[in-house]
Amino acid sequence: MTKNITSILGLTLSIVFLLLMSFSSNEELDLKKYSTEGLVLNYTVSLDGGIKDNTLASKEGNKIFSPYLGKSFVGFKEALAFKESGGNYFTVNTYGYLGKYQFGRGTLKLIGINNTDQFLKNPKLQEKAFIANAQRNKWILRRDIKNFVGKRINGIVVTESGILAAAHLAGPGSVKKYLRSYGLDNFADGYGTTVRYYMKRFSGYDTSFLKPNKKAKANTI
């Protein structure tokens, strides 16, 4: 018992001594030694807190005011546009595909656009063209969407957004062949991008906004 009391007393005196030494020091703390200037700071605060997935972009389509688009429809089309052109409305690739969503001239004619020069200079028309083409593709692929969504092909679960993205890349006919051959007929574009890749990259987005429309035209949206 005496040994325990002695040990406790010794520990207490040691703590008191250390505290007295720290308070008696007259040296000022130099905060400059602890500056964060020049350091790369990584924060772990989420940017998407409290923001819903269906946040919309501006009507012009070329200015996104939300820091988080998630799996919303706007997120779908902006992600697709970034893959196609880096989001550049005014670019033409080496194969002659035009604008933010890289449309071919033949596809543009199908949705009522014949003047490609005017199309390339008009961001609003490009946004309308994307909607019209997606609605038309959704009508063409409506049975395939019903029959294949939820199934696994080439290791990828088929989703509606994946189907529509692949149709934008390769055309609805190529997507039908891919699905109905269970992945054996896997179209690749001039850069080597495949239907399977788009199925995977753009899976799981909410494309319910798009209504199937056989006669969709950009000038009527």
Rank of each mutant, 00 (worst) to 15 (best):
R136M: 14
N147V: 01
L9E: 05
L56H: 10
Y68F: 09
T220W: 00
K215A: 06
Y95I: 11
K32S: 10
R196D: 09
L9P: 01
S208N: 13
G112A: 14
A166L: 11
V40R: 09
S203C: 04
P67A: 01
A165N: 10
I51E: 07
A188M: 08
M199Y: 11
I15T: 13
K63P: 06
S208T: 15
L120V: 10
F148V: 01
T107Y: 03
V158M: 05
I131P: 00
M199V: 12
N213G: 05
A57M: 11
F90L: 06
V45P: 04
L56S: 13
R152G: 00
Q102R: 14
S22I: 09
A129E: 07
N213M: 01
T207R: 04
I8G: 00
Y198P: 01
L13M: 12
G61I: 08
G106C: 07
G204L: 08
V16F: 14
K128E: 13
V149W: 00
A132I: 14
Q135C: 12
G150I: 00
T44L: 13
K109F: 06
I145S: 03
G49N: 05
L18D: 03
G50M: 07
A165E: 12
R201I: 05
I64R: 02
L13D: 03
L80W: 06
G50T: 04
S181M: 06
K63I: 15
K32M: 08
G150S: 02
S203P: 01
L69M: 09
F90S: 12
V74R: 00
Y197S: 15
L125A: 12
E28K: 10
A129S: 15
K63T: 14
G171K: 10
L98H: 05
K215W: 11
E160T: 12
N213F: 04
I8F: 06
A166S: 13
L39P: 00
S72R: 03
G155P: 15
Y182N: 15
Y191S: 12
D185T: 13
G173R: 02
G171I: 15
G171Q: 12
K124G: 08
S24M: 03
Y43F: 15
G190V: 04
P123N: 07
R136A: 13
R105V: 12
D117F: 09
N88K: 12
G99M: 03
K100M: 13
Y197V: 07
I140C: 03
T159H: 02
E78N: 13
N147F: 01
T6C: 03
V195E: 06
I156M: 02
S174E: 14
I51V: 14
L47Y: 08
G75F: 07
Y101A: 04
G150C: 00
I153S: 01
L125D: 14
K124F: 15
L80R: 01
S24F: 05
T55V: 13
E78H: 10
N154K: 15
A166N: 10
K124L: 15
N88H: 03
L108E: 08
T194S: 12
D53N: 12
I131N: 02
R136Q: 15
L120S: 06
Y95C: 07
S181L: 05
E84T: 05
A79N: 05
G70H: 00
T207P: 10
V40Q: 10
R142G: 09
